[in-house]
Nucleic acid binder design. Structure first.
Lengths: 208, 208, 208, 208
DNA sequence: TATGAATGAGCTTTCATTCAT
DNA sequence: AATGAATGAAAGCTCATTCAT
């Protein structure tokens, strides 16, 4: 019976995960403000009172979801500080992260884009902060690329950031809008390469 | 009293415009669902009951705003059907349209991006339709560019569309998020050119 | 039609009064926390949404009721600052105020006693403040009585205050508990005199 | 296993006492309706589920507390039926009982005053009954005093009861409100004597 | 005994919409 | 045209109570 507490703990984690997944689905479908706790509870197959047993409030639940997103993203980016990676590898890793997350948890990516990246209504100061940190970190990559003569310098690093992230986001959110799942690893690969190529080399024929 | 109806009608138009402008502001600040009729009425300097004299419902008001956006955009694109314009000119015109609208009515652009382009919560079938028409129309430009050997063909026209529109949107919404107004015509020009250049020629330095 | 605005304003006042009276009744019957807005609305014969049209919140409504009580009481006491009245007159006036209010609005007096004077659960800092001001003001009367050799000095002025106010309150709340209305002016008079006499001269026979 | 049930029973009693004490504290702090079972369990250092192992419901727990109060009070008063005590001794004993209970269990006294003596919201018929019995019993003392020519007869015995009990209650609840503990036996004695003196002989100076 | 997960009725508050004036 | 009083559905959150373990 040494496992009992661990099992109990696991049970709590399990239920939390069930609720988080359900919330993810509902937040994506309806947006934060339109999502009702009842919807989430229903999606999780539990009574809505139980949601409050595991999470303090709707906002708390939302933040728990966002935390998962940011944690993954920042873990990825922190690794770069200790490794020798090229600018192109880092940009490729970003694209891949978005696409992989989309494959694993499309709702999560969609929530990030609609509720954080492109919204103002839900942005508490804490949430804005995470987002700005992410923007800065990406801008830093661009700046390194510029000083390393990998990226053109006639356009501000911040502008390159917008263009790059916007392209990724648009891609993903279009897939969401059109309900296109990422069918295969090959398809994901093709998209990632294409996106990066256009960003680096442009859409013009002559470069191809 | 030959003038009376005309005057009345003008007065109606005026008041409608006042309400639409107020709604635009409020919808941008709070998002569609969080925006209250009271807020809009207050911003318009009228009582909230009067809003219902001019518009059927909140959704109706929202659609009236969207109509303005789509009308302008489709008018622009329809002209191309009758004129001989290059692919590059058309892409440039699109970028310019977004930036000009942003200069003229930043709220309108913001609403388009957050509430339509990147949201699912507010997308009635009619609204999805407008959006898909716009995507198709842009994709057509890309396809023409590809068959005219202006644009690379190893990436689907639809993908190029995503990348292109995503870059524009991200740019504009970043300006909104950071509260950056477009200060001068020159700045607008610089951004438009930069954006188009990165899309056409890529971010890579020519030497690399 | 010069009366129209005045009538409109009166109408608002009227409705406010209706709601306040209803709230008074319900707060007395159930206590602040147990009183539901629905109860109040029902008692007022309106929809519960309308309560919020006139008052910000349940607490706001409660404070509006308390304000009526305190205003009357402090107006009474302020007069004494400008008039030459004896200590006994002032104590008599206090007793009379409680009894008169009880006759006019028994619920109001009951609310004061149960929800303010004898409760801790509803006491916001602002409410405690009013109460302490009242206690101080009464204590001042006792102190004046003591220095004027009207009242015994072997017992602290504050203690005399407790005994005096406690006797009044107990009287009134007993009448509430037993559902005894103050039937006549004579009865009120008799009670007031009796109460004051016991406080001043005691219950012992020898004094009588 | 002769001791086991006794031990178990003792343990049960102990735990019941712990819960009762905790409940007493919480009921005083928040009032009956605002007190949560969780608060009580926390104060008792147990899980909230366990409260239901020892008590049927929140109301049951509340009644168990009240029972302690009434039991002590009625035991005191029943003694008088078999003993020869003067009216003054009995009144003194009542004052002393309140003050002693306040010293021993201030929460208990406070609950009696706020939730029973001065409230209507929590008064079930059974609770009203206890209270009325107490009032009657005290009134009887006053009546005896009147027929024994100890107390003035121009004021109804019931009115004397109100004045007397009101003075005690106000005193105690004021101490609670101001968070004044009864520091010493001497202080308790002084208050008891003062209170009784004012009731018997009045607040007026002897010279006046 | 003891725990705390699970339930759901119930409450306050908000706000789109209607309608009398 | 214009106002804002009036309505009531809806949603977030609380908490007494039950029950499996």
């Amino acid at each position: 019976m040494p496992l009992t507490p661990s099992v109990a703990s696991d049970s709590r984690k399990d239920k939390e995960t069930v609720i988080l997944d359900a919330a993810c689905k509902v937040f994506r479908e309806k947006g934060f403000h339109q999502a009702r706790i009842t919807d989430i509870a229903q999606a999780a197959g539990i009574s809505y009172g139980l949601v409050y047993h595991y999470f303090q409030s709707k906002a708390d639940l939302f933040d728990a979801i966002l935390k998962e997103w940011w944690t993954g993203l920042f873990e990825l980016m922190e690794k770069w500080d200790n490794e020798a990676t090229t600018v192109e590898d880092q940009l490729a890793a970003l694209v891949t992260y978005f696409l992989e997350q989309y494959q694993r948890k499309p709702d999560l990516v969609h929530i990030f884009i609609t509720e954080i990246s492109r919204s103002a209504a839900n942005l508490t100061p804490a949430r804005v902060n995470w987002f700005k940190m992410f923007l800065s970190r990406t801008e830093k990559i661009m700046a390194v690329g510029q000083s390393g003569k990998i990226l053109r310098t006639d356009i501000k690093a911040r502008y390159l950031t917008y263009i790059f992230l916007g392209a990724i986001e648009s891609f993903v959110s279009a897939m969401v809008l059109e309900n296109q799942p990422l069918r295969s690893k090959a398809q994901k690969q093709r998209i990632a390469v294409g996106l990066l190529q256009v960003f680096m080399n442009g859409a013009r024929t002559i470069n191809a």
